[in-house]
Design a protein around this nucleic acid. Structure first.
Lengths: 193, 193
DNA sequence: TAAAATGTTCAAAAAATATTGAACATTTTT
DNA sequence: AAAAATGTTCAATATTTTTTGAACATTTTA
């Protein structure tokens, strides 16, 4: 049998760990070189932690940074605040914030007398989970039945493989049932945290 | 308030839908131009479906292709079979198969008298789920506690923000508890399907 | 033991995805 | 109504991830 070295393999769970420029080195290291740091140690740690968490879901780094900053900051922050403190581009900050808002992970706060929109992190697990499931998982399940029937109709009943293929279709149908049961269960449990 | 057109936005749930070369057009369209088709309609549909499913988990297309082919084929297939029928490079087929094997999504089958290794798709939801959770989710939860204590120790107790920051740490601790409860529950439920 | 068969690895190329920044649109203020 | 403030969009660029293919390693066969 050929060699099986102990896997240098990038896909060690796919999506090889993203490393890049700033905020990468030591978890609590300073941000850039120019400003000593626009973030407190707690904020820095928080940003680093959420980059990691969101990364586990294959979400872009900027999303994690933004959520991490809002999570670790008591006062609502504006787009400019986010952009400045994180040293992001305007576009990234705008789109990232919009994405988080659409998911329900970030709340808009209206501050009387202030025109700029301000944002805070949503921390209710129920809301976070249901937003994520709604936007990123449910859509795939919705067109499941239609995909399944397409698959089923691709079977040639006269072929010797037909029996096997039908059993596979049944298999997938079972999987969908599992999800139909598991998702509400998880959502309900999330409500208790 | 500035314009809010209805989101052309790439990140419409992040990871914009991957399109690329072959097997992309119509779900059941022919694979390439050269060979009329190395796959049956059922196999073609299956591959297309699993590219989609694995894509939802941000896994590379080749992984979905390989699993889809094995899933829709009764006989065990060799590395060469996979490579040929899917028109993949040797490297992709080898690494993809290895990755799926390590996850437990693909089983190795020993065929008496045949030297080449052969593979079949694992379809037990319990095995698939636990493999995925073990490889891609659990690791993130494991170093959770350590990350959490780093975060906690970054709080300056004399700062006015200390109280708020402690409550955030508590928040995250609660999330970990949720996962500690939810994961086993999901694994158990998966066992029934 | 040389040749063939089977697999793996990894550097280079290709493809996909994210980020930037400047142009554009809207609302508010002057 | 012009200027300022605030946000969004999108084409260009940068980064990351995936794929390829040929070199390499091991085992089996002749």
């Amino acid at each position: 049998m050929p060699p099986v070295k102990d896997a240098p393999f990038t896909k060690g769970g796919s999506l090889s760990v993203k490393k890049s420029k700033a905020l990468r080195a030591a978890p609590g290291a300073n941000l850039q070189t120019s400003p000593p740091s626009l973030l407190s140690p707690f904020q820095l740690e928080s940003v680093s932690l959420f980059i990691h968490v969101f990364g586990a879901l294959s979400l872009p780094r900027s999303i994690g940074e933004i959520y991490g900053l809002l999570f670790s900051t008591q006062e609502p922050l504006s787009l400019d605040d986010v952009q400045t403190r994180l040293q992001l581009s305007r576009g990234s900050a705008s789109e990232g914030l919009r994405w988080l808002r659409s998911l329900g992970a970030v709340n808009q706060v209206y501050l009387p007398g202030i025109r700029k929109e301000h944002f805070t992190a949503e921390t209710s697990l129920r809301k976070l989970a249901s937003g994520y499931l709604r936007d990123r998982i449910d859509p795939h399940l919705e067109n499941g039945p239609s995909r399944l029937s397409i698959l089923e109709s691709s079977i040639d009943p006269t072929s010797p493989a037909a029996h096997f293929e039908k059993s596979r279709v049944g298999q997938i149908a079972g999987w969908y049932k599992f999800f139909a049961k598991a998702l509400p269960l998880v959502k309900a449990l999330a409500g208790k945290f």
